[in-house]
């Protein structure tokens, strides 16, 4: 039980799957209803890239939050997820808020001891804060990409002007 001991909450596979499914459903609330099932059920990672991102990243985050809590791994997954969320035209609170719902989701499915519970609270709280940081980073990255695009479009003009100045 040594390795198991480091798990925060040990869950049977099917319960974890259920949790993931419900969490995913919460994430998709902002999508048009006709599309949600496609996002969940189309398994081709190239035909359904958004669905792939949701499934993969939420799976990693859930696994780590309930387990060893490797923040580097969480951050990597979260970044990919938030990159998608930041483009959906949602308010920041809508884009990341669903993450916090995990706490309540687990709470009503799994009886937790108080120590477990407070650890989990702390983790979810940090998750949310990280997500906010990443949201902002993504928006900034988008604006940066936008600026770079404009500069690339005037690449030669700028260099011609620079040469003119030099001579």
């Amino acid at each position: 039980m040594a390795s198991q001991g480091e798990q925060l909450v040990a869950l049977p596979q099917d319960l974890r799957e259920q949790l993931l499914r419900q969490w995913l459903a919460l994430a998709l609330v902002h999508y048009p209803p006709q599309t949600r099932r496609f996002l969940v059920e189309a398994t081709d990672p190239f035909r359904n890239p958004a669905g792939r991102i949701y499934r993969e990243t939420l799976g990693v985050v859930l696994e780590e939050l309930l387990g060893l809590c490797n923040w580097q791994r969480i951050r990597g997954a979260l970044e990919e997820l938030i990159r998608l969320r930041a483009l959906l035209g949602l308010k920041p609170s809508e884009a990341v808020g669903f993450l916090a719902e995990l706490r309540r989701l687990i709470g009503c499915r799994v009886p937790l001891e108080s120590a477990q519970s407070s650890t989990l609270d702390g983790r979810v709280e940090r998750l949310l804060l990280e997500a906010f940081d990443l949201y902002l980073e993504c928006r900034e990255r988008m604006y940066q990409a936008r600026l770079n695009e404009i500069r690339r479009a005037r690449f030669l003009e700028e260099r011609l002007a620079r040469r003119q100045e030099a001579t």
């Binding site: 419900q22 719902e101 989701l105």
Partner: peptide
Amino acid sequence: VPKPEELVQIDY
């Protein structure tokens, strides 16, 4: 956004 209790019934 539904409450967790309602989530079980969430339909896509």
